[in-house]
Design a protein around this nucleic acid. Structure first.
Lengths: 341, 341
DNA sequence: AGTTACAATGAAAGCGCTTTCATTTCTTCG
DNA sequence: CGAAGAAATGAAAGCGCTTTCATTGTAACT
């Protein structure tokens, strides 16, 4: 039997390597590699011996070395704007659950709604050679797009819809959401219409869809908020105060998120507005608290977790070589009519 | 000048490597490596030439190879129970911000409050040889502890306090939180006391601190919730209904999170309870909505983001070889008295 | 008994970097 | 102008795995 100890000097108590295991188990390194990755190819008796040594030594394979050699890292990267804003947190959870159960690990990047940071993150992430990458939205800097397509790996864009994704997209049309909300309000008929909220690309799409649907019917008021995305409870409250102060007549408001809507609602509640007769508020996201506001918030519901799940499945299929993954995977949305519209 | 093309065959359009850059720039691979990692060691003229080639080719270094060779991955792993539950999301944001600005990347693991999953995650994460690891809480399976100490890397445990951390801990005493809340309620004096909420290790500590402080003074009622951590709005509402149904007299309630408290509050509100005279509710976390409930929620405030920031700084210092990092870094907490207690 | 096939194992090369140590090329100064 | 020291660069080895191809052992069939 050959001696597999390639080390020039005695092991200095440093981390155990595959070669160490091989030596201790009296087999070659390849066999240990197979015992770990493709145990079916190893004779049960040998396998058992190797496993015993692994357990005894507490060996943890080095996936850097493994990834370098095999060109597969079992790493999936995801870039989202934020994780504190509820909206993406559940998508991440869905993503992660699906990835972990397939033996993959999630590498997370937070872009803070900043395309420049998205670019830097993309570079940093690509340097780790993930097997796939997930991005939020469909608007990226051209350098980002170039780098991504040059890396030739599966890409999934989430939370938006497009006929021409970089690779595959999982999401829905924000403009359609805006239109749907407009129609919901139109049926009831209000004297004035307004939209308040964030200015990230997707919120803007929703606003534009809303405004366009009302074009020729009503002017949409857009209170100015001196802030950047994402917007807050406070923003909603201030905007609503502004709206209520500067005009008469019944009012239908579309907020860019449930948080903003909640703020708007608080102001309306404080002023004793009659909802939804005199004032209607529609949020976006159907956050946990939405059913519990006073009155309960009418909002647009999206299965946020499902976006993560479907994104994970798509990317895993692509990694597995499945070329039949659809370019655009649509996610459902609908209005949950509660007390505010 | 030597020819640095080591490849036996012509490059097949695959990813550009450091050797390719070296060849195109007419220098050796080491020089390119230095141009990237320690540009100060390279003559400005050479540097410029190399940078030009890198830009032109869109070269992205392979950090797997780099990490394998240098034994530094610039990767920090963090394991938290969940990211959808608000409580940890901001910690992650703080962590990430600090790490990114130091050139590190965050590898995220979600344990779902399950020690077994924490163990698996630890193994999977260690296999990627992070430069440091951050864990939530101080209770881990003994296999996890063994694996961690065996890996000999900087460890930071967050969101709890202990005199004997694995390495360093950043957090606070949950028992002390429970005591503080008990004292806050005692000052006002209620006929009955109750605690409702989750059963994760930290929530249990808070409950025990609360119960112990009231020992000999009052029995603490603990409504049964047929659920696991984390608990929800619904749990809070049901528990409050139970409490209100089965007893008389004024009542002081400590909830394991603001979400639970919000639910409890909704039930109390619906029944027209007089707060805080007849009924007191104290939450935990000071979530965004806490100031905006009706009445506004009294709760325990912790700077969640700060935990992340401090954890990141500690681990970065450790990586830099600083041995003066304190074993226990305390995080402040205090009661924000609003309308419910 | 003699192929043939398959299962189990091994040898060697190499993934793309960084490290260490050696060499070359400048400066600087007596 | 030549020696000494510093600055800039390079050669070679190797990080810890997986891959490919070769070899050996074992069973199955004629």
């Amino acid at each position: 039997m050959t001696d597999y100890d390639k080390s020039k000097h005695i092991r200095n108590g440093g981390p155990v390597t595959l070669a160490d295991i091989a030596k201790l188990a009296g087999v070659s390194p390849v066999t240990v590699s197979r015992a770990i990755n493709t145990p079916a190819l190893v004779k049960p008796h040998t396998l058992e011996a190797i496993e015993k040594v692994i357990a005894r030594t507490g060996y943890v394979p080095n996936l850097l070395a493994g990834g370098l050699a095999s060109r597969r890292t079992r790493l999936i990267a995801a870039i989202v704007p934020s994780v504190a804003s509820t909206i993406f947190a559940e998508t991440i959870e869905g993503l992660n659950a699906e990835l972990v159960s397939a033996g993959y690990q999630l590498l997370l990047g937070l872009s803070g709604y900043d395309p420049g940071r998205e670019l830097e993150l993309t570079r940093a992430i690509l340097a780790r050679r993930p097997d796939g990458i997930i991005l939020t939205g469909i608007t990226h800097m051209k350098e980002t797009r170039a780098m991504l397509t040059g890396a030739s790996l599966p890409i999934v864009e989430i939370w938006d819809s497009t006929p021409s994704p970089l690779d595959t997209a999982v999401g829905f049309s924000h403009a359609a959401v805006g239109r749907l909300v407009a129609e919901h309000l139109l049926i009831r008929g209000y004297d004035r219409y307004a939209q308040v909220g964030a200015n990230d690309p997707r919120a803007v799409q929703r606003r534009d869809g809303f405004v366009n649907r009302l074009k020729g019917i009503a002017e949409v008021e857009l209170p100015e908020l001196d802030m950047n995305s994402p917007s807050t409870f406070r923003d909603g409250r201030m905007a609503m105060a502004q709206l209520l102060d500067r005009g008469e007549g019944s009012l239908g408001v579309f907020c860019s998120s449930d948080v903003v809507a909640h703020g708007a609602l608080a102001e309306a509640h404080a002023r004793g507005c009659n909802m939804p007769g005199e004032l209607a508020i529609i949020g976006f996201g159907d956050f946990d608290f939405a059913p519990h506001t006073h009155p309960p918030l009418t909002t647009v519901r999206i299965d946020r977790r499902d976006i993560g799940t479907k994104a994970a499945r798509s990317i895993l299929r692509k990694i597995a070589g499945d070329t039949s993954v659809e370019a655009m995977i649509d996610i459902d949305f609908h209005i949950v009519a509660r007390g505010t519209a």
